[in-house]
Design a protein around this nucleic acid. Structure first.
Lengths: 215, 215, 215, 215
DNA sequence: TATGAATGAGCATTCATTCAT
DNA sequence: TATGAATGAATGCTCATTCAT
């Protein structure tokens, strides 16, 4: 019956916030910002509605944190991936694989990425957000590697930012395709199908790479 | 003071519906289905809120019509483009240009396309809509031309559907980039900038083409 | 092409008003005042919605006229029936038959009577309407005949107004029963059934009469 | 500041629902289904509009529960009254008194009964509701006692159902008369008037009884 | 910290009424 | 006189947010 220590409380608090954010990701991926109800999130996290407001000031704040959380992680993953000292083309192809594998593990993520660029303006005022900002997590590190490749001659000439975005576009649609396939195979746990998904990932990667490869 | 003839009324109805659908496109591109208010649409069309319900049974119906309208037009444009008898690579590069030019003329369209795939499940029940259906307007005709190119040897081997989607992904992100640029240049009507946009379109096209080109 | 004469116009006007009132009766019997839409009435009368407002200032006015119209007719029928010089009991039993026959001819009427006492306060302000007023059309003449019967000894002692209302209540529920029966026999035009309805009318009449008969 | 226990919450829910249903009865008796606004009900219950929707899915559902609630109680009262082993005529006359007394205590009830038969089709689809169903609560038990009386010879021959309905009609109009009288005497608390009402109840009862009594 | 009852602003929808033709 | 398009106030319902416990 002794009250919880400060540390215990903070740990609980941290955990609850994570649970809520995780639930929010799932619901958000399905419905988008406006259609997502706080009650839905609470239900997914198996919490009372009111409790959400104990951890987040309001819906907008919750989603800002979610956005910043995921973007930070994404940026972290991306940056650390591209910090490896390897040929740019290898880095890019490995990156495509990495991202696709993530979709298999966490299908909601792919829809999260698709939606968030459309909703981000609901989360911040224009002053708080340069229009391109949200892409930085993905695009900037990619662009930077492309830049290197161009100088080394392994990647073809062109606007590196645009090339990075189109590279991302090709991967993104690939993830989409992958997600649909996986959805259709729900329930099945055959080796064959798992293998098939891997083949698709390879093809997505290969195709995306043609965008940047020199010659 | 005789009443309007049936023809006059039908003309009015036709026009009003178009005005409402046009207004809906703009608001929708900005906010998405859930966040779009009928009042917003009415205000954009400079009509009373109630009138929208004179022409459309309800919000969902309105958006179904909008969706079907735009998809029909898109399919029409796409199909008739790809019906021309020209080398597949030429058709594809010309198509990329076509789509980009449309974005310059009608910037809302690009956001419409991005959003609709995420919202379409709000408009129809699962039975009414195969998951991939919405892409058919774009993807199917592209895939069909890619198929031809593969047989002729001008397009590289691979899953034609996946390739078509990634081709579309590259264009889509290009449109995105283009839209942002144009937005930033709003107000300016310099020749230079117009020229710059054209250069970007060429680059978007060229990059998208690398995805499919053989070798 | 000569314009209509004043007389013709007035005749048309009179007819149109009657058509609208007739349509209103049907819809009203089905739905009641609040749920009745002007559009419904117009549709029943095969007129444009706006035209209703050409003939009636507004919904309330329309229903006031309808109410007064029907009540006037009812009163007229009732009064003229009871003006006959015949024994009170005969007059009352004949009256019950009369009312039941009307229901067979015009089934909406029975529901009209049931509803109107509940809705009449929506049509007039309290000052315009003594609470009992609506019953006068039926109750007053009946009460007056009952009064006679009491004095002649053919009708039992008691509050004539209350007795009149209860007499009416017994008929009213009889009409109700009759209406349901008729409804169920819709489509059938057998002699047998017609005969059956007549037998029911006789029973309704006979039962109602026990209320007033002396001894 | 521990949260309410499950029991406390259930108690609150039970109470609130009852408050809302009670308020709904009053407003409904006054205005009928279509004209009753949820806001009105909330105001009568001194609650926020939204809360009504916390307890009832929508207006129709609320009124279905209200209907079923009251009909269940009515049936309960009626059935248990007629289960007593006493001569049919005594049971019927006592029943008339019972019903009239209820009107004095709860004047809204009489109007509720009058309205509900007209509105019940708005609450259920045709499949869910046999046309005569609503009357069962009143009519069936009455008819059953009448049946007994007929066999014992204390009640005259005839269709028991029809007789039951006409018996009910006579009582119903009596209640109506009573309600009006009581309304007019609002404010006055004279013994005399109370006595007068009792006399009227006796007369209503006596008259209703003539309908069924043999001879 | 936790619960879910309570509030009320906001949006979808309806419908009486007006208006241009 | 006749039509149906147009308006907007009113009402059902939802949902972010607050509050009592």
């Amino acid at each position: 019956m002794s009250p919880r220590t400060k540390e215990q409380n903070e740990e609980i608090r941290r955990q609850r916030k994570q649970e809520i954010l995780r639930a929010a990701t799932l619901v958000y991926a399905e419905k988008g910002y406006s259609a997502t109800e706080i009650g839905d999130i609470a239900a997914h996290a198996r919490l009372a509605r009111g409790l959400v407001y104990h951890y987040f000031k309001n819906k907008q704040t919750l989603f800002r944190e979610l956005y910043e959380d995921i973007m930070a992680k994404t940026k972290q993953t991306t940056v650390s991936h591209f910090q490896q000292v390897r040929p740019p083309l290898e880095l890019l192809s490995e990156y495509a694989r990495l991202v696709c594998m993530q979709v298999l593990k966490e299908p909601a993520l792919s829809r999260f990425y698709m939606r968030i660029s459309l909703d981000v303006h609901l989360l911040y005022t224009e002053e708080q957000l340069s229009t391109f900002e949200w892409v930085k997590a993905f695009i900037e590190p990619i662009a930077s590697v492309i830049e290197q490749g161009v100088q080394q001659g392994s990647i073809r000439q062109g606007s590196v930012n645009l090339m990075a975005m189109q590279f991302w576009g090709a991967i993104s649609q690939g993830m989409n395709y992958l997600g649909q396939l996986q959805q259709e195979q729900k329930g099945t746990t055959e080796q064959t199908e798992n293998h098939q998904l891997m083949t698709v990932i390879e093809e997505v990667t290969e195709t995306a790479l043609t965008i940047v490869r020199a010659e």
